[in-house]
Amino acid sequence: MHCPFCQSEDTKVVDTRVSEDGYSIRRRRECVVCSKRFTTQESMVLMVVKRDGSSEPFNREKVVSGVRKACKGRPIEEELLKQLGIHVERDLRSRGVAEVKAEEVGLAILEPLRLLDEVAYMRFASVYQHFNSLEDYSKAIDQLHAARLHE
């Protein structure tokens, strides 16, 4: 690690802390040469493979943004959307893989969104699962009813 002040490679770690979400580590470092301190952040990058084959780093805010659109006009607090994003990220990271398909991200959103708000779930599912007919909606509603009976 190079000191951002004097460019020396001789630095030492003074303090290490795990971030609130548990997926990154914050290190406080001190340069042995100039004695200035600076902070670094380390995290494992979870990659999402998109439908076109390209990859991009997982972005929890993109999950929250997509769910927020499905929840438009619904009585859902922003904090609950953030918690859903954290839940989805934990689910994906717990799989122990470096890459997930975009489809897996969408599937990971469906169940926690169903538990949060069934109307938002239907909106999200209709776009994500490409509903094309009333029968598609009818099947999804029947599945919601069946899920309620099993809770």
Score class of each variant (00 low, 15 high):
128 Y>N: 13
142 D>Q: 13
33 V>I: 13
112 P>A: 11
92 L>S: 11
115 L>R: 15
136 D>V: 01
21 D>K: 08
126 S>F: 08
43 S>M: 15
150 H>Q: 14
1 M>K: 11
120 A>P: 06
135 E>R: 14
15 D>Y: 01
30 E>G: 04
55 S>M: 13
48 V>Y: 01
53 G>T: 03
5 F>I: 09
70 A>H: 01
73 G>W: 09
67 V>E: 02
140 A>G: 05
136 D>S: 01
53 G>K: 01
16 T>K: 05
150 H>E: 13
33 V>G: 00
143 Q>H: 07
26 R>T: 05
70 A>I: 03
100 V>C: 06
33 V>R: 09
22 G>Y: 11
29 R>V: 00
116 L>R: 11
136 D>Q: 04
143 Q>S: 07
51 R>I: 04
22 G>C: 04
58 F>G: 04
13 V>E: 00
53 G>H: 04
118 E>G: 02
66 G>R: 03
55 S>W: 04
36 K>D: 02
53 G>E: 02
19 S>G: 12
47 M>D: 00
137 Y>C: 06
62 K>P: 06
97 V>A: 14
60 R>C: 02
122 M>C: 05
49 V>F: 00
83 Q>V: 10
41 Q>N: 10
107 L>D: 15
5 F>V: 09
118 E>Y: 08
142 D>R: 13
38 F>S: 00
63 V>N: 01
77 E>T: 09
39 T>A: 03
119 V>A: 11
55 S>L: 07
81 L>A: 08
125 A>P: 01
27 R>I: 03
23 Y>P: 04
46 L>G: 07
120 A>I: 11
2 H>N: 12
94 S>Q: 10
70 A>L: 04
100 V>N: 13
35 S>Q: 10
69 K>F: 07
23 Y>A: 07
